[in-house]
Design a protein around this nucleic acid. Sequence first.
DNA 1: GAGTCATGGATAGTGCGACTATCCATCCAT
DNA 2: ATGGATGGATAGTCGCACTATCCATGACTC
Lengths: 213, 213
Amino acid sequence: MQLSELSERSGVSVASVKYYLREGLLQPGAAVSARRSEYDEDHLRRLRLVRALLTVGGMSVAQARDVLAAAQDPAFDRHSRLGVAQYLLPPRVTTPPAGTPEAAAWQERRAEVLALLRDELGWRIHDGAPALDALTEALLTLNSLGYATTEGTLRDYANALHPIAEAELDVIDEHPAIDEAIEAVVAYTVLYEPVLLSLRRLAHEDVSARRRR
Amino acid sequence: MQLSELSERSGVSVASVKYYLREGLLQPGAAVSARRSEYDEDHLRRLRLVRALLTVGGMSVAQARDVLAAAQDPAFDRHSRLGVAQYLLPPRVTTPPAGTPEAAAWQERRAEVLALLRDELGWRIHDGAPALDALTEALLTLNSLGYATTEGTLRDYANALHPIAEAELDVIDEHPAIDEAIEAVVAYTVLYEPVLLSLRRLAHEDVSARRRR
DNA sequence: GAGTCATGGATAGTGCGACTATCCATCCAT
DNA sequence: ATGGATGGATAGTCGCACTATCCATGACTC
């Protein structure tokens, strides 16, 4: 198929497809001549994934490029790829510069959280996990606004989420085509986030409705 | 305190504070004279909340304004405010225009999800809940990429999330100052999202590490 | 084999959101 | 009385995600 057909079938304008090609979000088509290339179903799939990451996943073009590149890197095995996706995925957080007084509080809080997850819950997580930074950031922000975040709450969250994560990896592990379609990992990681958040809000609504009587 | 001090204590530039004032994210200070106003601790709190919504919460200035305005509206009681926050909060989703073939599939899927939550799980949720739209959108996107989303998965997610929602409302209900600091609801709803997502990613890492052996 | 037309590639332009900078006519504190 | 900050208005900047225009070429149509 040619560019115009790729554009039509995906619902993305020709100009935008060109833009994604330029930015490296899409593999170039097979050059059939200097001024003509052939695209296949894989390009279409990839294009759809890109759109999903940008819209549903809320990622920037640059983030999407990095993640897709890393997820495709054959140097990573199946499980590392999940890690890679996670390590590159937003939210990226700006840690305070070393030396400042905030940095100390930051490190302290981070260590507390890590200790809770590792020692108390027995989670095997890497020290440099960016999700840990994001978590620290969120907790400190909450605190700075005057809302306490107790250890108990955090533990409850963690315990509630763990079986979900387990189930998700089950699905990924069972996925037959996952070695060819590596993007599946990215898709699952990013695109299930809105599912989770939506359900949480709906649960809020339910609980609120019940209590109201 | 004056503008410069408000700026200093919040770490937000004077120009930005002026911008937020213009955009209605911040209440104007008490005009002590034509060219001088007085700001208090409430302004500082609010400014910090605004920054948190924009950075940690990833909201746009317009969204933050709408949410804060609604959350402050005295026409809403305690529980409605949670609803208000939820109904205004991102992600906002673009439903397909009526009449198109996608719209039919969209409605069908939405009805399925609603039935699952309402009839099977007994959740009391409103038909027009925007989170339901976001959920439908996410599921359809996943499907269009070739990833099946089974009813069972959804049910598992829902069941895992419900106790979390319950616990969150507990905290909010116990909050003594919540009637004065209505923003607490917004803060909890928005700022706990990154906590949830970060923990999910960390749980992924743990599960992945265990399975790797 | 001429004409038409989409293509790949390059480059420039657009629209928007979130600031940021400049001005100016006052005040207020010193 | 006066220099520096202030509120208010207006204009400018910057980054991002496109979008539009051009161009030389090559492929398909007749």
